[in-house]
Design a binder for these strands. Structure first.
Ligand code: FES
Ligand code: FES
Lengths: 146, 146
DNA sequence: ATAATATACTATAAAAAGGTAGCATTTTAT
DNA sequence: ATAAAATGCTACCTTTTTATAGTATATTAT
């Protein structure tokens, strides 16, 4: 199981875009707000648009917007899009896959332990995130990665 | 949160050593059984011995054995020794740390989601693993990583 | 003593991830 | 038309992780 820095950036950007009420999010604006390296973020945004989460609009006044309703995108979607479909289904002991037919000695314990996490990642859409943010705004301190 | 390949190797080796009933585990034997690259595994074993999980015995008939009782070592110990003490305490959105005073919008959901996993990793010692293995041996298929 | 069998150490290479720079292309306000 | 403001693309660089090779050192059976 890996949540790479790039995936964290992706979740961070999307969470930011989902919770603010802008019409459009240009790369440079996101870069300034989130302190993610400029060119790296641009590449990531292009990638996220190719993956269907956001739409890019080129040219003056362009930027990025969500391409579908926030309620249709959850955290697991993004993680799997970034890390591959098996990202959250890896064997704790590093076997090639975590398969029910070929369990390792930790398999059932590990599967159970992961389930709550996977469940949360599946059940939390970016619309939920926005609602949460609007409700709890005062108690949310952290905005910047570094 | 990252479980790197090296950490998976570490858990794999220790799980193997904990469940077999050998007096001594030479590096070459572990390498052959677990298909972990020879020199890389040797270095890892030295590392694990420096970290106090196993003891190295040099010379003919040497190898590695656990340096303390299996019941005193759990999965979180090993993960934290390999990945650093904050390995399982990282912010989902990639903020520098996951801190109660400086929560991000996902903080409380993510903290709850992680807890079951962390709990399992803490509550499962390598002695538990051995018991489990002795009991379920027939249903455990997977041994080799690749 | 000596040979065999181990681990320990060091240097290096290869691969993957993260980050940077520059230019091309697209769009729109003026 | 033109300039400004945006994304798209490619090539390259740096750092970290993973892997390999060779040599030094330690221990013990014989
Ligand atoms: S096979 Fe190891 S955790 Fe499932
Ligand atoms: S601060 Fe983001 S998960 Fe805790």
């Amino acid at each position: 199981m890996i949540l790479s820095k790039t995936t964290e950036y992706a979740l961070n950007v999307l969470a930011f875009m989902a919770t603010r009420n802008k019409e459009m999010y240009p790369a440079d604006y996101l870069c300034k707000e989130l302190k993610i390296p400029r060119q790296y973020l641009k590449r990531l945004l292009t990638d996220l648009s190719k993956k269907g989460f956001i739409t890019s609009i080129r040219g003056r006044n362009g930027g990025f917007i969500f391409s579908r309703d926030l309620s249709t995108i959850n955290f697991l979607h993004v993680i799997e899009a970034m890390e591959g479909p098996e990202a959250m289904n890896t064997c704790l002991l590093g076997f090639t896959a975590c398969i029910v037919d070929h369990p390792c000695v930790m398999h059932d314990l590990w599967t159970k332990a992961r389930s709550k996490m996977t469940e949360t990642l599946t059940n939390t859409s970016f619309a939920d995130l926005k609602n949460k943010y609007d409700k709890d705004k005062k108690s949310i301190a952290q905005i910047i990665i570094h």
